[in-house]
Amino acid sequence: MIIYLLCIFLFLVGLYGVVAKRNLIKIVIGLAIMEYSVNLFLILIGYVKGGAAPIRSGEMADKAFTNFVDPLPQAMVLTAIVIGLATTALLLAIAIRIYKKYGTFDIREIKNLKG
């Protein structure tokens, strides 16, 4: 149970970065940390003690062997990781465009509209 709590604490650290920081790069880092902690939480739920990786090869090719970890959250997280890379790149592209227009990463400066 303490592993779940530590994992959610990592989520809270990322949330702190998103809410309290004023640098756009730090906000992107906070979002990425939140995403990683959610991925880890899904995999932690699907773990079975003493289970093998869900691949039927070697001695696990036998039909009677069923002590695998859950393959469903692994499949979901596999797609989520690659989506995370693309969305992080999109956020960084927006950040670097803002830097070119305003000359800073500070979100308080960006609020003042310039013509």
Partner: peptide, 29 residues
């Protein structure tokens, strides 16, 4: 932690390799 009971995934694990023909169950899913 470690005492997960598979409810939905049982249909994927038990006959999964025979139904899809893929040895890697994650790819099959």
């Amino acid at each position: 932690f470690g005492e997960h009971v598979m409810r939905m995934s049982e249909a994927y694990v038990l006959p999964g390799a025979e139904k899809t023909g893929s040895a890697n169950l994650v790819t099959g899913v």
